[in-house]
């Protein structure tokens, strides 16, 4: 193929629409990109999963306190109804329930506050690691655009990468936070709080943590990626880190 025949067919009319990159190919590139910079990806992922692990652990310990209260309340009712023969430990628990009413309210407030703090820390952590990982790739984005990539394609690649990283890091983060708190509770309170309520709370929190982690990662990646993709390639290439 000579340049001459090319030039002739590439008049105004010959400027065909850019062929869309198939999703399978985009996924392949995005995964390759995560794989090739594996350790960088691990560090980025660490930012996400530590944030989510912290968030999960705070929420989970809150759930445990609530479950425990319910368990003790149930015991109190059972004792009052005469269906449970109380052990000394049960009596101690029920008594503390009565005296701790005011404390419990304060503890609940503290927990809410902690949850919010956890969410903020987690947001900042994720935003920071994702912003870094996109910013250091401005030049790459500029180069890709020089090679004929459309803005949408660049964003799509980052979208796939972010969704994947966000989802799996959040799951790992949840498991980490959940496991640590559950083991601590198992050691201190025994098996009585690990009933149905525990599993329901766990599944709900899994959903919430993964949602929070994925959405935050997604936002923190897509916004800078879009900004870079919309720049003229010359400007993106000029950016020095």
């Amino acid at each position: 193929m000579s340049a001459e025949s090319n030039t002739a067919e590439k008049g105004r009319a010959g400027l065909r629409r850019q062929i869309k990159l198939p999703m399978s190919k985009a996924i392949e590139i995005a995964f390759k990109s995560i794989k090739i910079r594996f350790w960088r990806s691990v560090i980025t992922a660490a930012g996400i999963f530590l944030g989510i692990a912290f968030f999960t652990s705070v929420r989970m310990s809150g759930e445990f306190s609530m479950i425990q209260r319910k368990v003790i309340e149930a015991k109190r009712d059972a004792i009052a109804a005469g269906t449970l023969k109380p052990t000394p430990n049960d009596i101690r628990q029920v008594n503390s329930l009565a005296t701790d009413q005011a404390d419990a309210k304060a503890a609940e407030m503290r927990l809410k506050w902690l949850s919010i703090m956890a969410l903020i820390v987690c947001t900042v952590g994720i935003a920071n690691s994702m912003l870094m990982s996109v910013t250091e790739r401005y030049k790459e984005i500029g180069t890709m655009k020089c090679l004929g990539a459309l803005d949408g394609l660049v964003v799509k690649l980052f979208f796939i990468e972010a969704s994947f990283l966000g989802f799996f890091s959040s799951v790992i983060g949840f498991v980490l936070g959940w496991l640590v708190i559950s083991l601590i509770r198992l050691a201190t309170d025994g098996v009585e709080v690990f009933g149905l309520a525990f599993w329901i709370a766990s599944v709900k929190l899994l959903g919430l943590s993964v949602l929070v982690g994925t959405v935050l990662t997604f936002i923190a990646t897509i916004l800078p990626a879009m900004r870079a993709a919309q720049m003229p390639p010359a400007a993106a290439l000029r950016v020095e880190i």
Binding site: N6, R17, Q18, L150, P233
Partner: peptide, 16 residues
């Protein structure tokens, strides 16, 4: 040229 046509041009007509 719109964005798509420009991308096409960069892809097929010009090497950098």
């Amino acid at each position: 040229l719109d964005a798509q046509e420009l991308a096409y041009l960069r892809c097929h007509t010009i090497g950098y």
